[in-house]
């Protein structure tokens, strides 16, 4: 099409079409290549017995056997599901609300708020692996601070009846700072005139927050919710550092890793576990999308 005949935005020249086409295709290709292909590949691999050695073509399709094995005869699986859910619930009901509370307190301008802000955010800068080591110093049975102060002899990381909770405290320590920062950013963006108007109308602090500020912060609330869910489902590093996700600290992510990455190399079986994780994540993704899509109309 000749340039002279260009009349409106709907009629693009050949070059423009190429550019627009490239702008659509390149990102799509990248997303397909980096996200969808691996996801689909691992779902497909979960139906095989591939052991990661030699070409994939050497793998044998064995149907749903891996899934059957995971559910029926793999002892760590159900504890892992349970632990992941506990993790999610604790993050959602304990860590996130505390983070939000701290953000509100700091936003109100308590004395030394900058100091609190910095020190609470500090753990977020550290990797979870490092956090595992830091808490090791606190939890260690023989040399740990906690046992030294309380005079107890609990093996916080080793005893399967308490180590999940010990790990959750360490994970929450970081999560609180993260949520606090996110929420603080949101709170700073709230139009001060809204609060003034509420005060003029005679609303107290509590009412102002729950009836005015909280609803206004809806986008931030959704982000906080999503971050909490994502962080809980992908919880891995901390537990891996503690004991490779064994002995009371099984999580789906650690089971996937120990089956696939280690010397075991049960790619097919590990992929089946990963698919379970994908399914669980999908539930939350669907919920999230429904919230986002249902924009107030």
């Amino acid at each position: 099409m000749a340039r002279s005949r260009y009349k409106g935005i709907n009629q693009l020249s050949g070059t423009d079409r190429v550019v627009v086409g490239a702008m659509v295709l390149v990102p799509t290709a990248i997303v397909v290549w980096l996200v969808w292909l691996p996801a689909v590949a691992s779902v497909l691999l979960s139906f095989t017995n591939w052991d990661g050695i030699g070409p994939v073509s050497s793998a044998k399709v064995i149907g749903l056997k891996n899934y059957k094995d995971v559910v029926e005869i793999y002892p760590p699986f159900w504890p892992a599901i349970q632990h992941n859910l506990i993790w999610l619930v604790v993050m959602f009901l304990v860590a996130t609300p505390i983070g939000m509370l701290l953000a509100v307190l700091i936003d109100r301008g308590v004395a030394g708020s900058r100091f609190y802000q910095t020190s609470l955010f500090l753990p977020v800068v550290l990797s979870l692996a490092l956090i595992g080591f830091i808490w090791q110093l606190i939890y260690s049975k023989d040399q740990g601070v906690l046992n030294a102060v309380t005079g107890g002899s609990t093996d916080w990381y080793g005893d399967p009846s308490v180590n999940l909770w010990a790990a959750l405290v360490a994970a929450s320590w970081r999560q609180v700072g993260y949520i606090m920062l996110l929420y603080l950013a949101g709170l700073k963006g709230v139009d001060p005139s809204l609060r003034e108007a509420a005060r003029v109308d005679g609303a107290n602090e509590r009412t102002t927050f729950f009836k005015i500020v909280f609803p206004v912060l809806r986008p931030i609330n959704i982000i906080v919710l999503v971050v909490t869910v994502i962080e809980s489902l992908r919880a891995f590093d901390l537990v891996w550092v503690i004991n490779k996700g064994r002995n009371g600290l099984e999580l789906i992510s650690t089971l996937v890793t120990s089956n696939i990455v280690g010397e075991a190399s049960r790619i097919g079986f590990g992929s089946a576990l990963a698919t379970f994780m994908l399914l669980i994540s999908s539930v939350f993704i669907v919920i999230y999308l429904r919230i986002v899509m249902r924009e107030p109309s």
């Binding site: 002892p75 120990s258 010397e263 075991a264 079986f269």
Partner: peptide, 15 residues
């Protein structure tokens, strides 16, 4: 087999 030793026997003996 290493897959048996690491993914079955380690958790089993710990159990």
């Amino acid at each position: 087999r290493p897959d048996f030793a690491s993914t079955v026997m380690i958790p089993a003996i710990q159990d």
